[in-house]
Design a protein around this nucleic acid. Structure first.
Length: 182
DNA sequence: CCCTGATTCGC
DNA sequence: GCGAATCAGG
């Protein structure tokens, strides 16, 4: 595979949209992130204009920010979504450490509540062994994507979505609670 | 250890 | 021109 005009165009687009070299490599296929970086340099598009994420209006309150593991991906977000949840839900290690009560809250949290700013948003083309394959949206619609955060070893989902996917049965929960109670 | 982009240099 | 190896950093 070589740098056809088409692939170069795609590269330019994705790069300007703020995707990382490895993400672009995954999208294009048949190239490594090194190849992408090398090409980016040869094309002279090195210095990237910042991701098109406008800081929220500096209103009275501090803008709601959710800590993400990596830089925000370009917001091509077209999924109609009113606003970030009033109470941002944390993910990953934090979620795993949550106490029992928080666990319950997480277990019943709807997908809509947790989705807003925390996704890597990958297409099926860039799923790997270590990307969360939690589907978001309607497969078949153009704005469909997968969660894409780092998945746990041997599990197809990130820590958070694994919690939703693998909920202990009511019976096991009761058993667990009984033991915890002494 | 996961990841990022930058640079070098043999091909 | 290409990209693996390497470097420097988060």
């Amino acid at each position: 595979m070589s740098w056809t005009d088409e692939r170069v165009e795609r590269l330019k687009t994705l790069w300007s949209e703020g995707l990382s070299a490895s993400q672009i490599a995954a999208e294009l296929g048949a190239v490594t992130r090194n190849a992408v970086i090398g090409k980016v340099h040869r094309l002279g598009l090195s210095g990237r204009s910042k991701p098109q994420v406008q800081p929220a209006r500096p209103t009275v309150a501090a803008p709601p920010r959710v800590k993400t593991a990596s830089r925000p991906v370009a917001q091509t977000q077209s999924t109609s979504r009113p606003a970030a949840p009033a109470r941002p839900i944390t993910i990953g290690a934090t979620a795993l450490k949550a106490d029992a009560q928080a666990e319950e809250a997480l277990a019943v949290a709807t997908v809509a509540e947790i989705e807003p700013p925390v996704f890597e948003k990958v297409t099926i083309l860039s799923l790997t062994e270590s990307t969360c394959k939690w589907p978001v949206g309607d497969p078949g619609k153009p704005d469909f994507f997968f969660c894409g955060r780092k998945s746990e070893v041997g599990i197809p989902y990130c820590a958070f979505h694994a919690r939703i996917a693998y909920q202990p049965s009511a019976e096991r929960r009761r058993e667990r609670d009984r033991k915890a109670a002494g």
